[in-house]
């Protein structure tokens, strides 16, 4: 019998997906740890900074992933597929809950831990709050494209797959989103 100890190196996404397909819950935990924090961050900015909604969206996306990974065909990357699940859950949530109220606790939630530069921290927190407010006013696709491109660093192709949009539309949404956000940030100044 040719057997080996468990590998110490990190498994690729494809290897983890295969292991999950064979029923390995530990491999799924690795996927959750690898992509979950970024999925949550995306969800949080997408749903207006509401951490309860972001948690629900991310949780439902990950549970869907667990149920469906066995049938994941690998036509897109795992990362793109997971962000698509987040996006779909966020769309579902918005459909059921519109209009989304602005969270009055937005500013307090962004107050960071104490650091060596408290003035900069306060400025960053205010900037983040202003950005979130500007994001909330953007049309849905512009907001999603901007977040995936600028914050998550996805390529146009990946964004197109995640949001089911042609690449040309991705570019258009990004261009308009950037311009609108910059204009609104200028007002904040």
């Amino acid at each position: 019998m040719v057997t080996a100890e468990p590998p110490e190196e990190e498994a690729s996404d494809a290897a983890l997906v295969r292991a999950v397909g064979a029923g390995d819950a530990e491999a799924f935990r690795e996927i959750v740890d690898r992509y979950g924090p970024r999925m949550y961050r995306y969800a949080l900015r997408l749903v207006g900074g509401n951490d309860t909604d972001a948690a629900e969206v991310t949780q439902e996306a990950l549970i869907s992933a667990w149920k469906d990974l066995g049938t994941f065909q690998g036509r897109s990357s795992l990362k793109t597929w997971l962000f698509r699940l987040v996006h779909r859950r966020a769309v579902d949530l918005q459909r059921h809950r519109r209009p989304t109220p602005i969270n009055d606790d937005l500013l307090s939630r962004f107050v960071p831990e104490a650091s060596d530069n408290p003035l900069q921290d306060v400025l960053d927190a205010e900037l983040l709050a202003a950005l979130q407010q500007a994001l909330d006013e953007l049309p849905w696709h512009q907001r999603a494209v901007w977040l995936l491109r600028e914050v998550e660093g996805m390529s146009y192709d990946e964004i197109g797959e995640a949001l089911a949009l042609p690449v040309g539309s991705v570019r258009g949404h990004l261009h308009r989103g950037r311009r609108t956000l910059a204009e609104r940030m200028a007002r904040w100044r």
Binding site: V32, D33, G36, P37, Y40, R41, L44, R45, D51, A54, A55, T58, Q59, L62, F110, P112, D124, L127, L128, A130, L131, E150, V151, R178, R179, L181, A182, E183, R184, M185, A186, R187, W188, R189
Partner: peptide, 26 residues
């Protein structure tokens, strides 16, 4: 536009921000 620089700063802040809250989801 005038807000471009502010948007750049906000983007850097959002990239570095750890919103917390994921542990509970996990």
């Amino acid at each position: 536009v005038a807000g471009g620089e502010l948007l750049d700063r906000a983007l850097r802040a959002v990239r570095e921000d750890d919103p917390g809250g994921f542990e509970g989801v996990r």
